[in-house]
Write a protein that binds this DNA or RNA. Structure first.
Length: 432
DNA sequence: TCTGGGGTCCTAGGACCC
DNA sequence: TCTGGGGTCCTAGGACCC
């Protein structure tokens, strides 16, 4: 038996914890570069603001409807997430943190009324962190996800489902007939694993509700679609096919990519950007204890603009698998210089580390050259420690630039709130 | 004037092997 | 007149997730 606990409009809720004046108002959080809406309060949803809507297309609502738009403050959201997750873990035996705002909890064999227990946990998270959540319970992860969707919808749109499902919905506690009614009242697109494409195909075949989907023949689903959808249907029927993953498996690739604040044409500026991205990716690589065998670098112009388009990527194999920032930056820059063409307005670049292996596994080799091995490893450890303690960017690779060069690539963030919980200088101050 | 970032899994087809 | 059978690995592309 699983519970899925999910934050409501998570990023907006994090902002509201420290800005209670935003309660009851339409609020959105914008993506990097203040580009588009990535989180919306219920009031913003009611105004018709869609997920992913470009900010400049909805900006008029700022004056007309009092819409508040904030730049993404991931330092804040990450820290609030940690607080929420540690409380949610108490709901059951094991927890899988599935994303920044949701986690699955294995609640098999927990005694007592699970619905009641979940309501109390939900209240505790709200009291202790200020974050509103909803809980879905079901015999499989897919059903728990669905239950969570129902709990949220019942809360947000009274009348859409029976009021008792608001905030906490336990599909496992329902009679067969009541369950079928709920499944028949839920669109097939709401199912975890059914995206826009497959949703459209299903609807075209007359499969409009979740109930319709659960009644399909498994062999047909496999033949017509895939084993993936077949697994989803089995899960909806109550047969667990997806296990809880308590410890996340190591990443198979690690990326750092960014759209630029303004168009970049100059190779020198791109070199600074790519150095910064490769350094950041290397940091993530060391944190998971891996080495990379190859570095992929890409640059591209904006497909949304009428300008001349150019998009290219290149993979540079490294001399040996490494987690050394200098070696990874060197590879990334070598790739960049190969694919760079002048005369284009570049809008985005990125570095991806691939062909990852465990750092413990090392190929022996005849040591003809200095400059790698133990010493470099200690240098990286020291660099990471300094950057952790004194803030990102305290110690950098020189080619990341020191600010003499224009930084058109730097992202725009005009509306970011303070990092209330992670920077001593930005802590909120109360007045009596 | 603008439209994010970071991942995973599955499938089909080609190359290659014995 | 006929030109096998079975398998692995790699890559590109599609779909999905938050």
């Amino acid at each position: 038996m699983y519970a899925l606990v999910d934050g409501n409009n998570f990023y907006v809720s994090c902002e509201r914890v420290f800005r209670p004046d935003l309660n009851g108002r339409p609020v959105i959080v914008l993506s990097n570069n203040d580009g588009c809406a990535i989180a919306r309060s219920n009031e913003a949803k009611a105004l018709g603001v869609k997920m992913g809507a470009p900010w400049l297309g909805i900006r008029h609502l700022e004056e007309k409807e009092g819409l508040v738009a904030l730049s993404a403050n991931f330092a804040l959201y990450g820290d609030m997430s940690d607080r929420m997750m540690s409380l949610v873990a108490g709901l059951g035996h094991q927890q899988e943190i599935y994303s920044i705002d949701e986690s699955f909890v294995d609640i098999s064999g927990i005694r007592g009324d699970l619905t009641d227990r979940s309501r109390r946990l939900r209240q505790r998270v709200l009291d202790w962190t200020g974050l509103p959540t909803c809980v879905g319970i079901g015999p499989t992860k897919t059903l728990a996800k669905l239950a969570n969707h129902i709990a949220k919808t019942a809360e947000r749109k009274p009348g859409s489902y029976p009021a008792e499902f608001s905030q906490v919905c336990n599909l496992a506690a329902m009679e067969r007939e009541a369950l079928q009614q709920v499944l028949a009242a839920t669109e097939v697109r709401e199912v975890w694993g059914v995206g826009p494409r497959i949703g459209q195909q299903l609807e075209a075949e007359g499969i409009k509700t979740v109930l319709d989907l659960t009644q399909l023949d498994l062999a047909t689903v496999r033949r017509r679609w895939s084993v993936v959808l077949e697994r989803t249907v089995r899960e909806l029927q109550g047969t667990p096919c997806v296990d809880l993953e308590e410890a996340p498996p190591a990443k198979k690739e690690i990326a750092c990519t960014r759209s630029f604040g303004r168009a970049v044409m100059d190779l020198g500026e791109l070199e600074e950007a790519v150095t910064t991205f490769a350094s950041r990716a290397a940091e993530k690589l060391r944190r998971q204890g891996s080495h990379a065998g190859q570095v992929l670098t890409f640059v591209r112009t904006s497909p949304f603009r009428p300008d001349k388009q150019y998009s290219r990527s290149i993979i540079v194999p490294l001399l040996r698998p490494t987690a050394d920032t200098a070696a990874l930056v060197e590879g990334a820059l070598m790739g960049l210089r190969t694919i760079y063409r002048s005369g284009y307005k570049f809008a985005k670049a990125g570095v991806m580390l691939v062909d990852l292996s465990d750092a413990c596994v090392e190929q022996g080799e005849l040591d003809f050259e200095e400059g790698h091995g133990e010493g470099r490893c200690r240098l990286m450890t020291a660099m990471d420690a300094l950057n952790r303690r004194y803030g990102r960017g305290t110690v950098i690779i020189g080619s990341a630039g020191t600010g003499e060069m224009p930084r058109n690539w730097a992202m725009r963030q005009e509306r970011r709130t303070p990092r209330y919980t992670t920077r001593i200088g930005e802590i909120p101050v109360g007045k009596a």
